[in-house]
Design a binder for these strands. Structure first.
Lengths: 243, 243
DNA sequence: AAGTGGTCTAGACCACAGT
DNA sequence: CTGTGGTCTAGACCACTTG
């Protein structure tokens, strides 16, 4: 068992910090001590600590040590890909998913542009509303290239599509670009969501790429203004030329 | 000259990729080749490639190599700290800064909460509007703990505060938490910005920490709805327990 | 001076791609 | 089989912090 020791260390400490077992400000063992404790080398420990640092769990200070950050106040480090992050900020609420549409459709010109399609073709389209505490707050519109995702069952659409893509189809998602903007609410928004009198809506566009760098999914997540929140944790760049 | 070789490699390649000299899809030399070319070891090369990958410049595929990503379409990798990122999405526009307020004020209870102050005290407060193409689009409200920033000149407030903090005061910014939400426009927003008839405003709250993990600055950036855009580049997490 | 993290080395073995 | 990136090792020297 000498594989992915750094992930093991990372999981150990991220769990202990998230659970509050290690409180904010607490000093971690030194890198040498951790190396010995896990029976590994210092560089491997450093790899785990780098990840903890980049994900907002700890903070390293040269000459002093590594310290637990206040993750409670941080909510949690976002900038992630995982689908429901924006929603599940406050857990312990009743969440329900309503599937409005789930099937294969011909592409529109806008969808071709979003998915960088060279010519019109079929798309798998899923439209779902997320209901929280009895109000339909979020409209999720997902588009998949049929070459990767031939079809989705209604049951899958009602649950986590990501789990299906990775677990069943073995598609490996690699990276994504996310754009957040505010736009005028469309008639569709007003029809499918409980928008009250809001005239605008927060649009989160997600362009999802596979390991072969191919764009395979485009997702539009449309949030009611008052319920939207996005949290981002950012470290200062080390390089000068990074703008 | 054997220090920060990995930064050197990173700067070389990020520059070449941003300039378009290395086009999207181009394969980089292998890690061994790069190690020899730069007269260093493979692990050092890997450190540079990891940074390039995390900042959205390249993409690594096991068994195949490292490939340049389409950074044009990416706009640029955000999740940064640099102040004007949200604004400067489209460059080449006339941008002007109007300083409304720049001085020391007693703290309000909300400000004490934002800055985690235990008791009331003086704050350095800067209020500025950003005018783009003749319209005041963004209202920036910055608060600094006077223990770190005793004062700012009007000239500094008109330019980049960050450059002053790091260059002159030698404060090293380490990390920040950013929160994006949409709120009702205040009378102050309507007075100081060209809001048209928009009743809501996008609020970006920034909590900035120094290397000693102390929170020293709180910034509120209030954007007119229609001009707001946030772009984020996210890599898929390697760990399972990351939610 | 002792302890800490930051950087670097020169190897090694593995898993995966392509031939 | 060869070449690629992914992981790991057991050292080394440096810069910084603290006593």
């Amino acid at each position: 068992m000498n594989k992915n020791i750094y992930l093991h260390i990372y999981n150990d400490y991220s769990a202990r910090i998230q659970s509050g077992q290690l409180p904010a400000g607490k000093k971690l063992p030194s890198e040498s001590e951790l190396a010995e404790a896990y029976g590994t080398s210092r560089e491997t420990v450093r790899k785990a600590l780098l990840m903890l640092s980049q994900n907002g769990y700890i903070h390293k200070i040269k000459g002093k040590g590594s310290f637990v950050l206040d993750t409670q106040r941080m909510n949690f480090p976002v900038s992630g890909l995982v689908s429901f992050k924006e929603v599940s900020k406050n857990l312990g609420r009743s969440v329900r998913t309503i599937v409005y549409e789930n099937g294969c459709v011909p592409s529109t010109s806008e969808e071709e542009r979003r998915l960088q399609m060279k010519e019109p073709g079929p798309l798998w389209k899923v439209v779902r509303a997320r209901e929280i505490d009895g109000e339909k707050i979020i409209l999720d519109k997902d588009y998949f290239l049929t070459s990767y995702v031939p079809s989705l069952t209604a049951e899958t659409a009602g649950n986590s599509i990501y789990a299906y893509l990775e677990g069943e189809l073995h598609l490996t998602i690699s990276y994504a670009k996310k754009e957040i903007s505010v736009e005028e609410a469309t008639p569709e928004d007003k029809l499918l969501l409980d928008l009250h009198d809001y005239q605008h809506i927060v649009v989160v566009r997600n362009y999802v790429h596979l390991v072969d760098t191919k764009l395979f999914q485009y997702t539009e997540s449309r949030h009611r203004l008052d319920k939207f929140q996005f949290v981002d944790f950012a470290r200062r760049a080390q390089s000068e030329s990074d703008l």
